[in-house]
């Protein structure tokens, strides 16, 4: 643990709270197992003393800003998480002047489970090219020179090469395990509709029966609603209790959107999203 960085974080949180700049600080603290970490909502300077940061801090805390709309909050943001900030600014879900962003330099996050921390970097970290958050009010820790591997989408390309039948079989098997707990939705910073389609009854977009057909429909619509919006934090896959490889779906769409519209979500808070814009050059077959 980088104690110097942690002291900086605690110091910053303390002064923000004591000076009344923010009502609360959303950060990380050590989890009950003494090994992994969990989110911490610090509303006074004594709670701020529990803040930590290390390579187990996987949560994308930006999601919690959606529940604190209207309140001035500080939030700890890793480089990857900062894309979620940009996404929510772009979609006008948060006000920039209501959020104090504590950017932290990140060496990458490792795979963990309760009471155990591995040495393996998470897959998304291996191809992360960000050396510091894209947006922040204060940057703590060092900006890191990264030797990331280029994102080649090799697993996606492999999956695309499979036949339709085998792909269908694969996903049928995966989705048959889905218990529709909606954890993937709850953790996603891009899922914030006041009433989710999955819970609308008139019309009933997707049946409530927990069966492969309905589960498939749920996951398909969920994924498409994130096309051009998923910022790749992969929290959905991490929290899935039945280990459905959701990143395969999200990254497939990320790849398609990149190829079709040269767009990646969360890089720019102002650039209009591809599904809310139309440019003639996107459809050359329309002619003049």
């Amino acid at each position: 643990m980088d104690m110097e960085l942690i002291q900086q974080i605690r110091g910053k949180a303390r002064s923000l709270l004591e000076e009344g700049t923010v009502e609360g600080v959303i950060g990380y603290e050590r989890a009950g197992d003494g090994v992994t970490s969990r989110p911490l909502f610090a509303y006074d300077s004594s709670a701020a003393e529990r803040l930590i940061f290390d390579d187990t801090c996987t949560h994308n805390l930006v999601k919690y800003l959606l529940g604190k709309r209207g309140k001035k909050m500080a939030v700890m943001v890793k480089p990857c998480d900062s894309r979620a900030i940009n996404l929510l600014l772009n979609e006008r879900q948060i006000d920039r002047d209501k959020v104090f962003i504590i950017g932290v330099g990140c060496p990458g996050v490792v795979e963990t489970e309760w009471n155990h921390k591995s040495e393996t970097l998470q897959a998304r970290c291996r191809s992360c090219l960000l050396t510091k958050p894209l947006v922040y009010d204060v940057l703590l820790g060092r900006e890191l020179a990264r030797k990331a591997e280029e994102e080649t989408y090799s697993d996606i390309l492999e999956a695309e090469a499979e036949s339709v039948v085998s792909r269908r079989e694969f996903w049928r098997e995966q989705f048959s395990r889905c218990i529709r707990c909606y954890a993937c939705r709850q953790v996603c910073p891009g899922c914030y509709c006041p009433v989710c389609f999955a819970e609308q009854l008139e019309p009933l977009w997707v049946g409530i029966r927990i069966a492969p057909e309905e589960n498939t429909l749920w996951q398909t619509i969920r994924t498409f609603h994130l096309a051009g919006r998923c910022i790749g934090c992969n929290e959905c896959e991490r929290v899935c209790p039945v280990d459905i490889p959701l990143s395969l779906l999200n990254r497939k769409l990320e790849k398609d959107v990149k190829e079709l519209f040269a767009f990646q979500a969360g890089l720019d808070p102002e650039e209009p999203p591809p599904f809310a814009t139309f440019r003639k050059e996107e459809m050359p077959e329309l002619g003049e």
Binding site: E91, R92, Q93, P194, P273
Partner: peptide, 13 residues
């Protein structure tokens, strides 16, 4: 109004 999340995509379009 209950369903609107205020993203303002419609405003621009």
């Amino acid at each position: 109004e209950v369903l609107c999340s205020g993203c303002r995509i419609c405003n621009l379009l």
